[in-house]
Design a protein around this nucleic acid. Structure first.
Lengths: 165, 165
DNA sequence: GTTGAAATTTAATGTCG
DNA sequence: CGACATTAAATTTCAAC
């Protein structure tokens, strides 16, 4: 199930449209793609079943929720052993300020994307939830000036997946 | 419009549920929250109007789309001037491999989250789209071992937004 | 791919605090 | 007057043809 799925032009077209607006109706999709609504329904159901589509997520505005400051924290965990990093990951994920967490190669073991109210709130978070922990050897804080979502995620070589008849 | 919006317990409950599953129907939301479906509709419409809810996004599985390797690229752009970084940002956002882009404080100006097919594909991307560019002074590549979404994004002090009568 | 029934969304109206 | 509930119409989903 970890292998890539064979997607035809209709699947790709639907995915591209849904990534622009995940609330598109099957009718709208069908009109745009040039197939029947029920076909769109079947295709989307298959994409969900095969795990290509993981889910639908709400995109919120952190600033409107009193979290106008975002930052990335580069964290070194020492020693980097399973019995320490398991609980570390669980705790970071449970923080209301955490938005995303990455386990990385390189000098920093983890990158944490956080959203806080203001610089004082960020300082509190870093001091109370990170540097105060024994397993956290170092935290580097980088503020986010601006961030962008990028274009739709699609297979690297769409034409290679298509039959050309 | 940049200020935070006053949200009551019903709004917060709806947001929490929608962040778990953005495809919940208003009927389901209403049953869970304990209000009428039309009230849920009104609340969600208001949350969209006031900019708390920005949109609904499809969550895809990069591995299923032939992009099983993800990485973060830390990029220094020199000189860091508007006339250079504007086109740089536009170009990075347009790359099919780009998933997200951040403008940061600290020694690295940008962080780019990319999804590629394999290490060779990553090497091609870094060489052809980053280091070959005159304005890119340095690129540091960090592979992503694992990543986690975190809990729902909610106001820092929910009770402070609620009237206690 | 098309049709038709069931469910959902959505707007309008009515009612309570 | 504002917020919520009820009702009804339009749309969408989804299964059967």
């Amino acid at each position: 199930m970890a292998d890539s799925v064979v997607l035809d032009a209709v699947d790709l077209h639907i995915l591209r449209l849904l990534q622009n607006d995940a609330r598109s109706t099957y009718r709208e999709l069908a009109a745009e793609v040039g197939v029947a609504p029920s076909t769109c329904l079947d295709r989307v159901a298959r994409l969900r079943r095969t795990g290509v589509i993981l889910g639908h997520r709400l995109q919120l505005n952190p600033a409107k929720l009193g979290r106008g400051l975002e930052a990335l924290l580069l964290v070194q965990v020492r020693p980097h052993r399973r019995e320490l990093i398991g609980p570390f990951v669980d705790r970071i994920r449970a923080l209301p300020e955490s938005r995303a967490l990455f386990h990385l190669t390189g000098p920093d073991d983890y990158l944490v994307h956080v959203a806080v109210a203001d610089p004082a709130d960020l300082q509190r978070l870093v001091l109370d939830e990170f540097t105060s922990r024994r397993e956290v050897a170092r935290v580097e804080t980088r503020l986010i000036f601006q961030q962008w979502e990028c274009g739709p995620l699609l297979p690297p070589t769409p034409s290679a997946h298509l039959s050309s008849d």
